[in-house]
Design a protein around this nucleic acid. Structure first.
Length: 581
DNA sequence: AAAAAAC
């Protein structure tokens, strides 16, 4: 019992501290209310996140695509133009209108598939009437500023409440976490009570996420909903795992939130049983079901032997292959798709920027950072060393408040980086794919794909770090000559979600054809590039020399075209691409 | 197709 107290307190204390921070920010935000027109309760920016005072261009309002600016943006937008951009009357009007009429979230078409689909709800209050959701949960909900359900919430929650399995696909930043936390906590009824034998002994709900950071974030959300009741919500880590040695302790846990491998190792050492688990949620389902995670996830699910275990998968993207695997795991599932699958939010203004080659990226970014921008800016790179060295380069070049986050860092370093980000202390956050999924930093207005994303899914999730909870966002993707084989695929995604793409990119040959043509020589070069540190690294430079003088000759001729920084409009294709057309 | 992340 003492051990349990320790666990509960230890876990809770730590999280209260984190949560306390949030509360602090939230309170501060309340005090600062009324500063800006477009700020709604949930979206209040704490003073720490009020970067507009630094960015003289003001909030980068998205201009209507119809006025032709969309085309210019990114490819051709000159620094001058970007600097001068101001709110137009039309923009202001739109902002005000959306505040009055529109829900905080954009409306999406919702399609459901499956047998006996429960009717969706239109308000959270309806949940009380229809499903007797505990009042405590609803009151915590409104405490957190949730007013009306988003698309996935209004459709997903009833499905889960009726104990059905679900595969839910909903765009980034549309409230998926709440869609499963609320019903799971409601179905669990009350925190485990030692007197009710029918609840069984042992963990009753399990939430799996692909990264530590995301698990942590889900835990925080869960604690918000858990306020006022003695829920045992455990963020599974090495520390908590060791306190579970005592079976009477682990039998009293309500919900575990964890990454798969952590859980698998606990299962293998016998320090955890999952036979009483009634709800299993896979967040970022497609990621959880890809090659590296699949066997771990399967092992965990196999350990959930309770006959009435409810399973649910959630993601913004779900490629056909992953969907098949997911569906095979679910029992009589209902499939809910909000908006278009594998598509970013139209509220994110996306653009592509040509940067010729890897060495040209840094000057392009520095040039960008010398202009007014909206911090915090999230910069994605492909590898850990590149994240570290890009962050170093930016610091050396005098960029203030640069941070870095990748999985090669220690647990504490990673936590600190996230904390700085949450507090608004980071202005430029350089990161790998760790940050690409699920992370919810409300203040992020801009994402830069410094290294080209390796898949449509990666692209959608990365840029989905902005444009959250109905806010606007901006995403810029650098592309080099080496990215040619994948450019068109990504360009189609931009097009699909309402951003514009230069004609010439759309005219590129089919990716498959180009891949065949280019792969052989490009692949090797890319491997070297990926390993190389950004900018300078003599050892790698040497390797690169060996890699082929042929490729360098190509590069040399391209450089004369100017580094991306001075690029004008790219309505014309760069030379390197012209030969592909 | 491949890196990252999971420990």
């Amino acid at each position: 019992m003492e051990a349990f107290q320790l666990l509960a307190r230890g876990g809770a204390r730590f999280d209260k501290r984190r949560f306390g921070e949030d509360v602090q920010l939230f309170d501060k935000a309340k005090r600062d209310k009324g500063k800006g027109v477009e700020r709604v309760a949930e979206g209040d920016l704490p003073a720490e996140l009020d970067f507009f005072k630094y960015a003289q261009g003001g909030p980068a309002k998205r201009s209507a695509r119809a006025d032709g600016e969309g085309e210019a943006e990114g490819h051709g937008e000159t620094s001058d133009r970007r600097k001068k951009r101001k709110l137009t009357d039309e923009d202001v009007e739109r902002t005000e209108k959306s505040d009055e009429d529109d829900p905080p979230m954009p409306r999406h078409r919702v399609t459901t598939k499956g047998s006996n689909v429960p009717e969706h709800i239109n308000s959270f209050q309806q949940l009380q009437e229809k499903y007797q959701i505990p009042y405590n949960l609803l009151s915590n909900l409104s405490q957190c500023g949730y007013k009306r359900p988003t698309g996935i919430q209004s459709h997903g929650i009833p499905i889960l409440m009726e104990s059905r399995d679900i595969a839910a696909i909903s765009p980034t930043g549309t409230g998926k976490t709440l869609s499963y936390l609320l019903p799971v906590m409601s179905l669990l009824g009350s925190p485990i009570s030692r007197t009710k034998a029918d609840l069984g002994a042992g963990v009753r709900a399990l939430i799996l996420a692909p990264t530590r950071e995301l698990a942590h974030q889900i835990h925080n959300e869960c604690l918000k909903l858990a306020q006022g009741r003695k829920w045992r919500v455990v963020l599974f880590s090495k520390a908590t795992a060791s306190t579970l040695a005592d079976k009477s302790v682990r039998d009293k846990i309500d919900i575990i939130i964890s990454t798969p491998l952590r859980l698998v190792s606990a299962l293998q050492t016998g320090s955890l049983e999952l036979h009483n688990v009634r709800h299993v949620i896979l967040d970022e389902a497609d990621r959880m079901l890809d090659a590296e995670f699949l066997s771990q996830v399967q092992e965990v699910i196999a350990a959930c032997t309770h006959p009435e275990v409810q399973k649910a998968v959630f993601s913004a993207t779900l490629p056909a292959g992953a969907e098949k695997v997911a569906m095979s795991m679910l029992r009589d599932p209902i499939r809910v798709v909000v908006g278009l699958k594998d598509t970013p939010l139209p509220l994110i203004a996306q653009s592509l920027t040509y940067v010729a080659d890897d060495p040209s990226k840094l000057p392009t970014l520095l040039q960008y950072l010398s202009q007014p921008y909206n911090p915090p800016l999230l910069v994605f790179v492909s590898t850990q060393p590149r994240a570290t060295s890009l962050a170093e380069e930016l610091v050396l070049n005098g960029i203030p408040n640069v941070d870095c986050l990748h999985a090669g860092m220690t647990r504490k370093e990673r936590e600190d980086a996230v904390t700085r980000m949450r507090r608004g202390e980071s202005w430029v956050m350089v990161s790998t794919e760790v940050m690409a999924r699920g992370m919810d930093f409300k203040g992020v207005r801009e994402v830069i794909n410094y290294d080209f994303p390796q898949s449509v899914q990666s692209y959608v999730h990365r840029i989905g770090r902005t444009g959250r909870a109905g806010r606007e966002g901006k995403a810029i993707t650098y592309f080099t000559n080496d990215d040619a084989p994948f450019l068109k695929t990504i360009a189609n995604v931009l097009l699909q979600s309402g951003s514009s793409v230069p004609e010439w990119i759309l005219k590129l040959p089919k990716p498959s054809k180009m891949k065949r043509r280019q792969m052989g020589k490009v692949k090797r070069a890319e491997a070297v590039n990926n390993a190389s540190r950004v900018g300078r690294n003599d050892a790698i430079k040497k390797k690169e020399m060996i890699a082929g003088s042929k490729r360098r000759k190509e590069k040399a001729s391209l450089k004369t075209q100017g580094s991306g920084a001075e690029q004008g409009s790219h309505s014309e294709s760069p030379d390197a691409y012209r030969s592909l057309a």
